[in-house]
Design a protein around this nucleic acid. Structure first.
Lengths: 121, 121
DNA sequence: TTATAAATGCAACTAAGTCGCAATTAAGAT
DNA sequence: ATCTTAATTGCGACTTAGTTGCATTTATAA
């Protein structure tokens, strides 16, 4: 996944901030919140959120609200469900796809909440 | 569902605030946030949240974070999944139960996000 | 190289929820 | 019926995630 290609396809300006954000999300194996990466990035949080928002409207990233009042973002790729641990707030991507249809509704995302292996002890 | 029975079973004091909260949630057909009901209740928000928190530890209510940074609460009854519309943020209780097991994880809740019938136009 | 629309940093703001503390109250004991 | 006391309440100040207005800077295309 080439950052410059992504940016050019959507006709966005390639700024240092955008490069930083996309590098982080492309390398990450799981969704990240602003809080997760604020130490690793050099831009202001307004810049972060404005870019994230643009990336979302361009479908480069998508997001969901977790159990900890934070929004988590990930690169839009193969759709998959997420497991959120109510105890430690960790998030796992579930690879086995869940095929779920609800009539008169378009399903985009599935979040499963519960207790993860670590927290079950 | 009798409010006095619920309160007595958990050995809590029956206060006016608790009565108000439980009445609202027992009558509601869907999960409610503080914002949904703040006009209808007479207590301070600290009191609301402290009681909600107690009701959650007593398993009288349970809650989840929706797509709009608000936490939604509902009476603990028959387990069911929720559909959250990403566009209008409405929440529906899904009655057909979804049987989902993930090895090494305890599943408590399922949230399905997408677009509801109204918003599909 | 320049023009300009878009992007940035900063500071001030919003909104959901939390916390400390003094005053009040439910419920059991007298 | 009243007293006692731990639990509950209201208030105000605080926290934290995210947003907004505005002056300055910068990527791109002419």
């Amino acid at each position: 996944m080439q950052i410059e290609t992504i940016i050019q396809e959507k006709k966005l300006k390639l700024t240092a901030a955008r490069k930083e954000i996309l590098e982080l999300f492309i390398d990450s194996q799981k969704p990240l919140s602003y809080d997760d990466i604020k130490e690793s990035i050099s831009m202001d949080k307004a810049t972060f959120y404005r870019n994230i928002s643009k990336f979302e409207t361009e479908s480069i990233l998508h997001s969901f609200e977790s159990n900890d009042k934070k929004r988590y973002y990930e690169i839009t790729g193969t759709p998959h469900a997420h497991f959120i641990c109510k105890e430690c707030n960790s998030i796992e991507c579930l690879e086995e796809s869940i095929n779920l249809k609800i009539k008169n509704h378009t399903v985009h995302d599935i979040l499963i909440k519960g207790i993860c292996q670590k927290c079950m002890g």
